[in-house]
Design a protein around this nucleic acid. Structure first.
Lengths: 343, 343
DNA sequence: TTGCTTTACGAAAACGTGGTAGTGTTGAAA
DNA sequence: TTTCAACACTACCACGTTTTCGTAAAGCAA
């Protein structure tokens, strides 16, 4: 077991000073060719690589970015991570991932843990609980310390920073409009409790599409679900009453559960019931029938978020104390992927 | 924008030495109560938190563990990460994630990047290409430097280290046996190319189950698929020939594709074709019909892997140079989750 | 020889922390 | 008065780098 070699050890071994070693390795012309070559050969032989931690301390840059998301066993979030990692890697950054488990406390704890020098900036999506509480002090604090933050998907207007979102409202509008276009009149919305920002926006889009088409907005057709497990019961009751002929679900889990429930009751999708889901994930693609979805490219969001963060990080480097905070909000475009669950 | 405050700044502000500040904050009795309180109040007011990087440098511990996996948009791997993160978090560790994209070069690069002090140990699953090449020098090197490595799922015998696996062979055996028990005779195996260690093992289990039941092993019923997209064509040809009445697929993507193909051809699952998949993921649960699977708890694997790594890290701390390398291989148990795709 | 420039290297500070080993002052016991 | 402990605090070192500044030796012209 040979531990990693340091400059100091090389210096001692070759009987030169540490600075000479450092300079030799960086090909400084200050050092004579002979010494330089000797040092480089030695370093190569012992596979010398500078210690990242020491470099971080010196440069006040860790070259890593922190990601805080509610969960990772989740198609959308994992595609976002994928997107972030691609760009980060290209620019020599590592990603450190922390999960909030949709808990406010964990989100705060994780941010504090990473904020003390471990990373150069954050990319995050708010936990449900944080959105519910509306308490963003931990984020403000981090930003005030000069650490850039990019928020994506689940964002808040209460924080000024770069953001990457999709236009949830108009995407929902488009989806509902397409249901209307195919002749559906009684369109249900299956959504989450609305302190989750995206749920609220999607509801708005749904409502607008109805009203624009002269369809009365019926509160009873909005089904709010807190927990997927209770979904099936609620759905089956409404299906029995034949209260609706189309469903717009805010995520694919709801959509597939609805389809399964409908099938069990002998209803045909899409003939008796058309279904559109938000988020184009793996379930929609492989479900039977496959589900028409609003694609929400997590990868693109990740790419964009990483680009924005890194740009800000490198810009900071240039004119150090120049605080030009022209925060932007990037909107990633969505489109409808038509599959078998609609006609 | 107030940058994070350091010991030095506090010391200067209160006109005491840095060590006095440090000791006051750690409640050392060396420091008079008055001074201690003054310092603590000041530190609290400015929200002092020690700098992780400086601590890492000093302690030669980063309190973070590196995860290297082939991909992240993948149910199994994301559950493993989840499992790792849980345990890591409990013990005050962060996780740094790098993706190899199943590329040997990226795997090597990422490992080298993290090995230079950024992390205390690795948890990894080999990339396909690495398994194909059989080149593990990057891992050996890291281990030789005294950095513990825990491998999971896609492991190799060529490296001595802690491992967490499932018994792929006997799990496959069990699955195939259950197909045989329900009266199936012509059982196909849909697998990947076999340089992926787990693919090979599952094939072995499949073969053994057949032979143990006196069913001839037929090479033609082993369908090797490199790319999911080509899967459908191959499958439909064989289905046309009615070559088999049951399928054991090494992952759920293959399974669901097979079911879809069969359904299109008017075959009924499970009556005409029984299907079992390896890996209990989200697709199996929500597919129609839902798919019987061999559960392979990624979360448990992650938990276990993290525990093993952290144990080794903390043990190292104790008796420093004591190299007692009694590596173990932990086998996580699997079980069959019966759903609609089998009878 | 003196004075000046190169060449080739070394010393030391800095990044932020924490532990060990002092140091100087006070007060009390011998 | 001397001695010695307790107290309250400071100095210094190490972790591994990079970088600025310094300087000795050598070379060269006058």
């Amino acid at each position: 077991m040979k531990r990693k070699i340091t400059l100091k050890q090389i210096a001692k071994e070759l009987d030169v000073s540490i600075s000479t070693v450092s300079k030799s390795l960086r090909n400084s012309l200050e050092i004579g060719e002979e010494t330089r070559e000797k040092v480089q050969a030695f370093a190569k032989f012992y596979n010398y690589k500078p210690n990242n931690i020491a470099l971080s301390l010196k440069n006040r840059k860790t070259k890593s970015i922190g990601i805080i998301i509610p969960e990772i066993v989740h198609y959308f979030f994992s595609t976002v991570i994928n997107g972030i990692e691609q760009v980060a890697n290209e620019h020599g950054y590592s990603v450190v991932i922390c999960l909030s488990d949709d808990s406010f406390d964990k989100e705060v704890l994780n941010m504090e843990m990473l904020a003390n020098g471990s990373i150069d900036g954050f990319i995050m999506s708010l936990s449900k609980e944080t959105q519910y509480k509306g308490d963003f002090h931990h984020i403000t604090e981090v930003i005030n310390q000069g650490m850039p933050v990019v928020m994506f998907d689940r964002v808040t207007n209460d924080i000024l920073c770069d953001k990457v979102i999709i236009d949830d409202k108009s995407a929902a509008y488009e989806a509902v409009q397409s249901l209307i276009d195919s002749g559906r009149k009684k369109i249900a919305l299956v959504t989450t409790v609305d302190y989750v920002s995206v749920g609220k926006l999607r509801t708005d889009g749904y409502e607008k599409a109805l009203l624009d088409n002269g369809i009365p907005f019926n509160e009873d057709l909005i089904i709010k679900i807190e927990d997927v497990d209770t979904c099936e019961i609620t759905i089956s009751e409404l299906l029995h009453a034949r209260a609706f002929d189309a469903v717009f679900a805010v995520n694919e889990l709801f959509a597939v559960t609805i389809i399964k429930t409908a099938s069990k009751m002998g209803l045909k999708v899409p003939q008796d019931l058309a279904v559109i889901a938000f988020t184009d994930g793996i379930i929609s693609k492989y479900s039977t029938p496959s589900i028409t979805t609003v694609s929400q490219s997590g990868e693109k969001m990740g790419n964009k978020a990483a680009k924005m963060l890194i740009e800000r990080l490198e810009a900071e480097h240039e004119d150090d104390e120049e605080e030009n905070e022209n925060y932007t909000t990037e909107v990633i475009e969505t489109h409808l992927i038509k599959r078998e669950s609609t006609d």
